[in-house]
Design a protein around this nucleic acid. Structure first.
Lengths: 209, 209
DNA sequence: CTCCTTTTGACCAGACTGGTCAATAACTAC
DNA sequence: GTAGTTATTGACCAGTCTGGTCAAAAGGAG
């Protein structure tokens, strides 16, 4: 499957991928137009069908590319020994954001992909691997003793995750397409929220660790 | 404009409104299909055009209906004397949820409506009234002195709002269409999060007020 | 019966769809 | 050079779906 992408040269491949991600995530599988994809990618109709055969195959190749890319990047970036919830969750957010540098619509596509019931198998594949990983991400080696005794860690975790997700949403909606991405600046901005949440949820004295 | 809706009998009117809200919010103005709207509403094509003239007019009538409905409901339900941030924001959430009872896609449509640049005038109209109202909602008569001195109230407010919004998102995605809506149960569920946030953000002793 | 409003759905021209294919361009090997 | 292979094009196809029209029917009121 993936060898199709390997045959293309890198520029063209990424143009096709990004055009497809955008079109599929904007309109879903059925309403996505291959004509618009080839226009956006700057290639001819024939070439797309030469490589991918048909629309469904293009979609499937895209799906496995996306799942693969996300899993690889998470495994590469997450420090599994880190006991601090905040550090861990910020790491995940930064993975998302840095992936978005090359493939702006990667996560939009992943969302649509998850929701689409049309093409079977793909949904299962991502369900098999992703939730397990996500559970590992926010539990393995995490030190829950840092939370105040009168704060329910489960609820607190939800609030922290939601806050970081909402920050991410706002970040993406503000990000202009021509802007370069300064990960350190993002980190600093996120830290404002993390700071408040740490002070609010952690036992006094722990937050400096 | 609105008199068009007044001429229709209530059942049919709501069927047309809900079908239109769903179609427009799913696909945006351009890709929304009037054929699907009439199918979903259970009326003929000719009738829709008899009442609304054309697609754009239908959209505009829908826009003012939605803006009107939301503003009326907020003004009816919000207690402007309430000094507690949490009470105020929970009120707003409950308004949203109860409006969704009759018009499930009302807020989805409002979101799309806000984003669409195509039909001019509507966007301005909602921008003129809504943001002012939203600012009033989360500042007028609010007692910010209840926050801990080491917690930035602005950041805290954002986190609270984001948490309630995310709770709302989850609620709507879990809500089956045939389920009846138990506002008291929702209130109890939200209280779990509000409790944790109050304990975390408010000065000790204030949270019982 | 007439007059009026409500309601229907077949019909239109045009846009757009996923997919094909014969023709060409570019590249490699000899 | 030439032969063979691969990459690439875009006009073309049959079909679906679009927003919108309109003559006709159905229904109600006097």
């Amino acid at each position: 499957m993936q060898e199709i992408l390997g045959k293309l040269d890198e520029d063209k491949r990424d143009r096709i991928i990004n055009a497809s991600l955008e079109e599929f995530s904007k309109h879903g599988y059925r309403k996505a137009s291959t004509n618009k994809i080839v226009d956006k990618a700057g290639i001819s109709k024939g070439l797309l069908y030469h490589y991918f055969g048909n629309k469904e195959n293009l979609y499937e190749v895209l799906c496995s590319f996306v799942v693969n890319r996300i899993l690889v990047e998470i495994n590469r970036s997450v420090d599994w020994e880190e006991p601090d919830v905040f550090e861990r969750l910020v790491q995940i957010l930064l993975v998302k954001i840095s992936l978005t540098r090359h493939y702006p619509k990667l996560y939009d596509f992943a969302t649509v992909m998850y929701a689409e019931t049309g093409v079977e198998g793909i949904k299962k594949a991502s369900e098999e691997v992703a939730p397990d990983l996500m559970q590992r991400v926010n539990s393995e080696n995490i030190d829950f003793g840092r939370f105040r005794d009168d704060i329910d860690p489960k609820i607190a975790m939800e609030i922290i995750q939601w806050t970081l997700e909402k920050y991410g949403d706002r970040f993406w909606s503000q990000q202009k397409s021509d802007q370069t991405l300064d990960l350190e600046a993002v980190k600093a901005e996120v830290l404002v929220y993390v700071d408040v949440l740490k002070r609010a949820f952690y036992k006094p004295g722990v937050e400096e660790a």
